[in-house]
């Protein structure tokens, strides 16, 4: 069965490693914080200016001056710090953040990503996404395999204005975990009960399948 958004977040959480600083984007990526594997310590960075982001506050304890990049009220963990936007992006561009997880509207087989604009329809802006994808070594895209109209989001070539070129190396969708290398999507894992044929039929870009592809263990 295809994963729900929580399942995608749960699978991505398995990629976390002890001692990492991690930037989580808006949407599915935010949920990753709920599934940190036991025994490891990670610290979340939010590009509006906090390291050591904690969970949402208890009702009545919200602070208008303490939000994440999604403008949601948050709390701090012990040892947290605040900083200005230039310092925040120095952490990002300077590759001091070990993992970036973000959503996308389209990803191409050579690692291009589009997630900020639909010409004539929707223009929200790129926020920090262009800085994040241009600099991070380790980027995981969290998204549904197809859009609401059933069209594949894993393409030969992106059709929407790009956010970054050749930067995505891993994608986790409701159907699969895929690595991007040598101009193709490589199928690494399947969601429980999802067939290779289904993944193949819903992937427009080149898909490489090597032998038996294991199911995710969640």
């Amino acid at each position: 069965m295809a994963l729900d958004k929580k399942g995608i977040a749960q699978r991505i959480a398995q990629e976390l490693r002890d001692g990492w600083y991690v930037n989580l984007g808006i949407g599915i990526p935010t949920l990753v914080a709920n599934y940190i594997p036991e025994g490891i310590e990670v610290e979340f960075q939010s590009e509006n200016g906090i390291l050591g982001m904690g969970p949402f506050p208890f009702e009545g304890e919200e602070d208008a001056d303490l939000i994440n990049a999604g403008k949601q009220t948050i709390t701090t963990m012990k040892g947290a710090s605040f900083f200005d936007s230039a310092t925040s992006f120095a952490m990002i561009r300077g590759q001091h953040v070990q993992l970036t997880v973000l959503g996308a509207m389209e990803v191409s087989e050579n690692g291009d990503i589009a997630n900020w604009k639909i010409p004539g329809k929707m223009v929200k802006g790129m926020g920090g996404a262009m800085d994040l994808v241009a600099s991070a070594d380790n980027i995981i895209v969290a998204m549904m395999h197809s859009n609401r109209a059933g069209v594949s989001k894993l393409l030969k070539k992106c059709t929407l204005p790009l956010t970054g070129v050749g930067c995505v190396k891993k994608v986790v969708t409701d159907l699969a975990v895929l690595e991007i290398k040598d101009g193709a999507f490589h199928l690494v894992e399947r969601a429980p009960g999802v067939s290779i044929e289904e993944i193949q039929s819903k992937t427009e870009g080149s898909l490489i399948v090597n032998g038996e592809v294991p199911e995710m263990s969640l």
Binding site: P57, F58, E62
Partner: peptide, 12 residues
């Protein structure tokens, strides 16, 4: 006024 754009909370 310090308006909050996305008031998110958890329950005790």
């Amino acid at each position: 006024e310090k308006r909050i754009e996305q008031r998110t909370t958890r329950t005790k």
